[in-house]
Design a binder for these strands. Structure first.
Length: 493
RNA sequence: CGCGGGGUAGAGCAGUUGGCAGCUCGGCAGGCCCAUAACCUGCAGGUCGUGGGUUCAAAUCCCACCCCCGCAACCA
């Protein structure tokens, strides 16, 4: 594992549900996608990389939230969707497209996809879509189906009313006919589920048996959504509508982007939507006779200071707060250097200032200062570096990025920073600088040149993570006269 | 009940195919004077949850058990 990329790279985040503001979890997925996109743009060319994110904007909850605010669902989704766009801009995210499920370009294609699904048969010869009764508890107050587990004393907690047992006809997707095919593709890694623990979890789910899923709901239970053409009383339920964004954004089936970029090289998500992406989504693609994505990469949830992040606990961390405090690049660094992709990790917000001072102020920022100051003072800012182009830049970060091990990738860069600090202490350039001896003068030039090369290597490797910082350092060290920066790269907090 | 994740130094974590227990922060003691009170070196600190087993060799593989977190909602 993980990513094997030749001539093009298509990466997606989930489309985020607009029921609430962006938080650090959304930000993490998006930051990871951004790092990979930047990395591959550097490697295979900007025009060969496509990075998609967006928002999922239909459904009963959105309609409800809009009603609470007394505005139309469209207006409501416009607002929240914009918050996501702003958040990504503030984090300097470089997505190539941002798709909204309420856009007509999406809806038109979803209608086509639904019609296609309605027309085709499964490999076993059954209709892919079939109509059957959906039975459940319905709360009139909420105007939606409610799970038994949501009830308090048998009543809807919001309306303090007993729900009614309601039957309605819905359209279902014949998942059962695809499970064994999907299972085989997952087992053989033709469809790679990463990390392995998640792959095993999915295979376990298949073994337990997954019921067919509904692709439509009645208009009264899902008032805000895409109509089914062949059944006027029904609207598309979330799965087909939301999941198909990954191809509608590419203008499936005829679009140039679709031809060039599908299948996706990697689709990122958190555990909560594992089942939908590893089973429903491949099944839909198989039914449409579309190739499956290559890798589905699943990351864990954050806990905040050891607790689950939740609105009711009031410990939700929003990316904008961090950006305001640290700026986009440092925020990305702090999040990626603390969180391991595959597993659940804890974010200790009160550790962020320490980490900032230790790694960025004392580490990278200080190193740039001490090196540039010496070059400025001892050599009048002039140093001859033989062909920067030809030095080896490889310090292991590439492999780590390709394996989604961002924490380790950053660690390797910081190991280089520390090595350089150690070398400076051993070489003692300030002693060499005082010597009149020609040999010492030569050595001074050579060690300072070595440090500049180190800064060069560090900057190049840092680019996918902190491209502005990398650019700043490169500008400083490639100037005709090297000078210690007037203001530190990272001011102490 | 079941499913999933986890228990490694004071804190947070890494340990890929079994081969000398590591990293970051913090603590202590030195050093340095280029640097943002920054930087470097050394030291202290661990029965790797418990009990068995396999093996020349186990944090790692096998069995049993104990403890913690998630499997409502918001939601990546």
């Amino acid at each position: 594992m993980v990513t094997k990329v030749k001539n093009k790279f298509y990466i997606t985040t989930p489309i985020y549900y607009v029921n609430d503001q962006p938080h650090i979890g959304h930000a993490y997925t998006t930051i990871v996608a951004d790092v990979l996109a930047r990395y591959y743009r550097q490697k295979i060319g900007k025009e060969n990389v496509y990075f998609l994110t967006g928002t999922d904007e239909h459904g009963a909850k959105v309609a409800e939230s809009a009603a609470l605010k007394n505005i139309s669902p469209q207006k409501f989704t416009d607002q929240i969707s914009q918050q996501f766009k702003d958040a990504w801009q503030n984090l300097a995210i470089t997505n190539d497209d941002f798709i909204r499920t309420t856009e007509s370009r999406h809806q038109k294609i979803v209608v086509n996809i639904l019609n296609k699904l309605k027309a085709v048969k499964t490999p076993a010869g059954n209709e892919v879509l079939y109509e059957t009764d959906y039975e459940g508890l319905y709360c009139v107050g909420c105007e939606k189906f409610i799970l038994e587990s949501e009830l308090v004393d048998g009543k809807c907690p919001d309306h303090n009313k007993e729900p009614e047992q309601v039957k309605e006809k819905n359209w279902f997707f014949k998942l059962a006919d695809y499970l064994s095919i999907i299972q085989q593709k997952i087992e053989s890694d033709e469809l790679t589920i990463y990390p392995k623990a998640r792959k095993n979890e999915v295979l376990g789910l298949i073994k337990q048996g997954i019921p067919d899923f509904s692709i439509s709901r009645s208009k009264k239970s899902v008032p805000w959504g895409i109509d089914l053409l062949w059944d006027k009383n029904q609207k598309a339920y979330v799965w087909v509508d939301a999941l198909s964004n990954y191809i509608t954004a590419l203008d499936y089936p005829k679009g140039k982007l679709y031809q060039k970029f599908w299948p996706a090289d990697i689709q990122l998500m958190a555990v909560d939507i594992l089942k939908f992406h590893t089973l429903y989504w491949p099944a839909i693609l198989l039914a449409l006779d579309i190739p499956l994505p290559k890798i589905l990469a699943i990351h864990g949830f954050f806990t905040i200071n050891g607790q689950k992040m939740s609105k009711s606990l009031g410990n939700v961390v929003h990316p904008d707060e961090l950006v305001k405090e640290y700026g986009a690049e440092v925020t990305k660094y702090l999040i990626l250097s603390q969180f391991s992709f595959g597993s659940e990790s804890d974010i200790k917000v009160e550790e962020f200032p320490n980490k900032y001072n230790a790694d960025l102020v004392n580490g990278l920022g200080n190193l740039v200062n001490r090196i540039t100051k010496m070059v400025e003072e001892y050599l009048k800012g002039k140093i001859k570096i033989d062909d920067l182009e030809n030095i080896s830049l490889k310090i292991g970060t590439e492999e780590m990025i390709e394996q989604l091990n961002f924490k380790e990738a950053l660690f390797k860069i910081w190991a280089r920073i520390q090595d350089c600090d150690t070398a400076i202490d051993q070489d003692k350039p300030w002693i060499l600088a005082k010597s009149k001896n020609i040999k010492d003068q030569e050595k001074l030039k050579s060690v300072l040149g070595k440090y500049i090369k180190d800064l060069y290597i560090i900057s190049i490797n840092l680019k996918p993570f902190m491209s502005e910082t990398a650019a700043k350092i490169l500008k400083i060290i490639t100037a005709s006269k090297i000078k210690k920066p007037a203001t530190p790269l990272f001011p102490r907090k």
